[in-house]
Simulated scan of single mutants.
Amino acid sequence: MKVAVLGLGAMGSQLLLRLLDEGVEAVGWNRDRARGPRAGIPATHLAPTPAEAVRDADVVLTMLTDGRAVRAVLTDALAALPAGALVLDLSTSGPELSRATATLLTEHGLRYAETPVSGSVTAARTGTLTLLFGGGADELATAEPVLRHLGRQTLHIGPVGTASAMKLCVNALLHTFNATLGEVLGAAVDAGIDLRTAYDTIASSAIAAPFVAYKRDAFLTPDLPPVACAVDVVGKDLDLFLTLRPGLDAPTVRTAVDVVHRAQAAGLGPEDMATLARLYRP
């Protein structure tokens, strides 16, 4: 089975490297062609265009900024996609754009499912992501030989659109927690508690979660941490969550959106999500 990975950012590059480690025949593409070599991907597994990447591919993985980027890149590659190829969108695209992409591809004799992921960059590299699947049983059967290399479990949420909605719910909870974690760490420091002591206490408490462990270095670094998920991306995810239903009653999430806007106004938009904590430091 030949796999193409479109989008080699923080997550996509690690997905491709994971597939290569597992012996999967895979090739990747990124708009910024320097991203692949920087991530350590051999030149022999990089394509100059999306069309070249997907040519002869059985399965295509997209890991791009949002649903609009996914649709634009797939439109560019449409003529080169083999009939019957399966496209799996691992991005956080939102249900509306995911369904629109599904319609576009099926009209051209192609198959589509959404497979947004939950987990860190490290989880992508080690194949321990949680994969949320939205699509038919036949598409899941085709995808499984690839997905088993990438995740510790695949949860079949329902038809196309449902996994995208579920991912937005997960991200809304995660991003709201991230904003609150920054806030309470600031309060702890204001109370005279050492930052590391405060963080490790939270990490040992009932609220501890994998997120607290794998974001420790990002929250405690004295300088700007490496960007795993930018504040601007957090804002995009939360905005998408609020569009799940007109007039959605989500006061806590809307508060987190306000925090993100404050961070963006402070110039933190391109920085890692953990930098929200800087809003509360003396």
Score class of each variant (00 low, 15 high):
residue 215 K to H: 07
residue 145 P to Y: 08
residue 173 L to H: 03
residue 133 F to V: 04
residue 176 T to Q: 02
residue 117 V to Y: 00
residue 169 C to G: 12
residue 148 R to P: 04
residue 144 E to D: 10
residue 150 L to S: 10
residue 156 H to C: 08
residue 166 M to N: 02
residue 146 V to M: 06
residue 144 E to W: 06
residue 198 A to K: 01
residue 189 V to Q: 12
residue 126 T to V: 08
residue 132 L to S: 02
residue 129 L to G: 04
residue 184 V to K: 09
residue 195 L to S: 13
residue 233 V to G: 01
residue 178 N to I: 13
residue 173 L to G: 09
residue 119 G to E: 05
residue 182 G to N: 14
residue 168 L to G: 11
residue 122 T to N: 07
residue 140 L to I: 10
residue 164 S to Y: 01
residue 135 G to F: 06
residue 133 F to L: 07
residue 223 D to W: 09
residue 212 V to T: 13
residue 220 L to T: 07
residue 124 A to L: 04
residue 194 D to I: 07
residue 141 A to Y: 00
residue 132 L to G: 03
residue 239 D to M: 02
residue 141 A to N: 01
residue 205 S to Q: 14
residue 158 G to D: 00
residue 164 S to F: 01
residue 139 E to A: 13
residue 205 S to M: 13
residue 206 A to Q: 14
residue 210 P to F: 00
residue 201 T to N: 09
residue 121 V to Q: 12
residue 214 Y to S: 10
residue 186 G to R: 11
residue 219 F to W: 08
residue 139 E to D: 15
residue 164 S to D: 14
residue 167 K to Q: 01
residue 137 A to V: 09
residue 238 L to H: 06
residue 203 A to P: 09
residue 122 T to S: 10
residue 163 A to D: 02
residue 183 E to F: 00
residue 202 I to A: 12
residue 127 G to Y: 02
residue 141 A to S: 13
residue 134 G to C: 08
residue 140 L to K: 12
residue 152 R to M: 03
residue 205 S to C: 13
residue 238 L to Q: 09
residue 191 A to W: 04
residue 135 G to S: 07
residue 140 L to M: 11
residue 208 A to S: 12
residue 150 L to A: 05
residue 192 G to I: 00
residue 226 P to E: 07
residue 152 R to N: 03
